[in-house]
């Protein structure tokens, strides 16, 4: 049996020196914002070009100007502001805690303008947008809004829904919500039940390929069972973080009706991933799932490793994906080779 396979990176990239320095100069007041926008465009073009040339089916713009996954939204919405720093999962990276004072209202939308700026650079690949999932957003924020957790989460989901709809009309073909919070070993099942409502809200009326991405660890069984029932087209799992536990989950519960995206390139270290290990994980996964289609991806965003390695990992993903497809007999979708 043959089936389709393709690859895409999970999310953002580390900043190249050009951007680090430009942002620093901007903060010091020695560089105008217009200049940064030009430099960002240049640097993003390099990152998009890397993905396109390596045959990724969906590409991101690298999100080089995002200080953390929440920040562009926090800054674009009223009634929420970024406060002190808190560790982002088990990484030596800190995000600014969004503090909600009232229900969020967008004063502008974040994604659509980016897509208009970058869409053509992504051709012939397709543009993917990535946003923080409403559950992760809510649980990693401070709620001083007077709303209940559920109410706040739903209002966040509504604004994110506006973002996604606008992004799709601007040309995004894939939309991804990131919900790393679900791997938290102490997460309440009620929160996962809430995620089911939130997913419906966030994707309501969004006509694009819908991905749920989780990363940084393995969810508990009870959580995983619920994730594969969510109303999304595809679920992205960081298998390389813990192949055995993930394969057990897949064996026990499958992946529902989702197209699995297998995170097999580890973007939290700087090794060249071991090809045989990657092949073994992919082979075992498809033997269990017997899918019609799979995606291959990285285990997290590529912003936790130095810039050069964030490029290197993209190269490894592209090369391994093609080689695996040859060796395991997948029908590999590479936008560059489709006439």
């Amino acid at each position: 049996m043959t089936f389709k396979a393709w690859s895409n990176v999970l999310g953002g990239f580390h900043r190249p020196r050009l951007i680090r320095h430009a942002l620093r100069d901007f903060e010091r007041g020695s560089l105008a914002f217009g200049m940064i926008e030009d430099l960002l465009k240049t640097a993003s073009a390099e990152i998009i070009g890397t993905q396109v040339s390596l045959g990724m089916r969906f590409v991101t713009d690298g999100m080089l100007d995002w200080h953390d996954i929440f920040r562009p939204f926090v800054e674009a919405w009223r009634n929420v502001y970024p406060d002190g720093l808190l560790r982002y999962f088990d990484n030596n990276f800190f995000y600014r805690i969004p503090v909600f004072k009232e229900e969020p209202e967008p004063s502008k939308l974040v994604l659509a303008t980016r897509i208009r700026a970058f869409k053509e650079l992504a051709e012939p690949a397709n543009f993917k947008v990535v946003i923080p999932g409403p559950l992760t957003f809510t649980l990693l924020s401070k709620n001083e809004s007077g709303l209940s957790k559920e109410e706040l989460a739903k209002s966040i989901a509504k604004v994110l829904n506006m973002e996604l709809k606008e992004a799709v009309s601007a040309g995004a073909l894939a939309v991804q919500i990131d919900e790393p919070i679900v791997i938290d070993p102490y997460i309440e099942l009620d929160d996962i039940n809430l995620l089911s409502d939130l997913t419906k809200i966030v994707f309501d009326g969004v006509e694009a390929f819908k991905i749920l991405a989780i990363y940084f660890g393995v969810p508990k069984k009870e959580v995983y069972k619920k994730l594969i029932d969510l109303k999304v087209d595809s679920i992205s799992l960081p298998l390389i973080e813990n192949p055995k536990n993930f394969l057990d989950l897949i064996k026990d519960f499958g992946v529902g009706d989702k197209i699995p995206i297998l995170g097999v390139i580890n973007t939290r270290n700087i090794y060249d991933d071991n090809y045989d290990l990657v092949k073994n994980i992919v082979k075992k996964s498809v033997d269990i799932i017997k899918p019609d289609e799979i995606g291959l991806t990285t285990s997290s965003w590529q912003d936790l490793i130095p810039y050069r390695y964030s490029l290197r990992k993209t190269v490894i993903l592209g090369e391994y994906a093609e080689r695996l497809s040859r060796e395991l007999g997948f029908d590999y979708i590479n936008p560059l080779s489709i006439v």
Partner: peptide, 17 residues
């Protein structure tokens, strides 16, 4: 001492190897 990796905002540390 490795390459620059972000800690927060536009602040980085050279993640050692």
């Amino acid at each position: 001492v490795g390459d620059w990796v972000r800690i927060f905002d536009n602040t980085y540390f050279r993640r050692p190897v």
